[in-house]
Design a binder for these strands. Structure first.
Length: 285
DNA sequence: GCGATTTGACCTAG
DNA sequence: CTAGGTCAAATCGC
């Protein structure tokens, strides 16, 4: 979709930049604070205050970005449709030979995709798992879900969920395609909802990793379906995605997480992921 | 018995 | 040829 109109983008961009600049300044102060912990405490904000401010900046930025999307569509920062023919129509290969065994299979790629990171693989949609795959160089398998309304209404939305290697409590969810179904709940937008911070610390007990990779993933699947209108939208980061290097990038970023957040602040750490990768904030219009 | 999930096979893009 | 996405038979759970 990348439907951001230029006017919106430029207006929002300024606002976002302002927020990010402020966040950056706070981060710089925080850095100084770490380098010189014995500095003047009465004149500089505490680490917690700075972290809170940084998070606020990110939140505001995300909020602006998200709200700029009409109709609650998920935000896409730096879209992926770099290729003109991403519709998949112009596949070089000849159509499947219509073998008897497996049906006409068409790999969907470069469709409308968004990525989010959250503490839970749940969201406000109903999904049905249709596959799981071990991914090369990844400790955890990737799970594949499609909209439960696929058969009813031909909804084409699918999502892929993978536990993050460096932080198994977090899930990287890639949404592919948009929901064309009517009643499978509201669109998967996030961040803009008020109260996201409160709702972010969603139950994660079910996410506790077990040692068995395969089990770990599948065992946390169950509530995928029953989970319902609950607006438990876990705070998350929506980013661009079609970049095949995205996930590794995210991983790399996580390695840079130096902060140990205090209890009331720990929600924000992974949110900054999207900003940590330099290519996420490049707007295309 | 039915619907959901698991899992290995199949299929395609790169 | 390989990695990853999808299918569908087998299995599970209610």
């Amino acid at each position: 979709m990348r439907a951001l109109c230029p006017e919106h983008v430029s207006a929002n961009k300024e606002s976002i930049i302002g927020e990010l600049v402020e966040g950056k300044e706070c981060a710089s102060q925080l850095k100084l604070l770490f380098q010189n912990p014995s500095g003047p405490h009465d004149t500089t904000p505490s680490a917690q205050q700075l972290v809170a401010k940084i998070l606020t900046s990110f939140t505001q930025s995300i909020s602006v970005l998200t709200s700029s999307e009409a109709g609650g569509e998920i935000l896409e920062i730096s879209c992926n449709d770099r290729r003109p023919d991403e519709s998949g129509q112009s596949r070089k290969r000849s159509p499947p030979p219509a073998k008897d065994r497996r049906g006409c299979y068409k790999r969907r790629k470069a469709a409308d995709t968004r990525t989010k990171i959250s503490q839970t693989m749940e969201d406000e949609y109903e999904w049905r798992k249709y596959g799981q795959k071990k991914i090369l160089n990844s400790k955890f398998p990737r799970s594949y879900f499609r909209c439960t309304r696929k058969h009813d209404q031909g909804c084409k939305a699918v999502k892929q969920v993978q536990r993050r290697e460096e932080n198994p409590e977090m899930f990287l969810t890639m949404y592919i395609g948009v929901h064309t179904c009517k009643d499978n709940l509201k669109a998967p937008e996030m961040v803009t909802d008020s109260g996201i911070w409160e709702s972010y610390l969603a139950p994660t007990e079910s996410n506790k990793a077990s040692n068995d990779d395969q089990k770990a993933s599948s065992s946390s699947t169950p509530n995928m379906k029953q989970e319902y209108p609950k607006v438990d939208t876990p705070l998350s980061e929506i980013t661009d995605n079609s970049d095949p290097n995205l996930w590794p990038n995210l991983k790399d970023f996580e390695l840079l997480e130096p902060l140990k957040m205090s209890d009331n602040l720990d929600f924000g750490v992974d949110q900054s992921v999207g900003f940590g990768t330099d290519h996420h904030l490049d707007f295309e219009y």
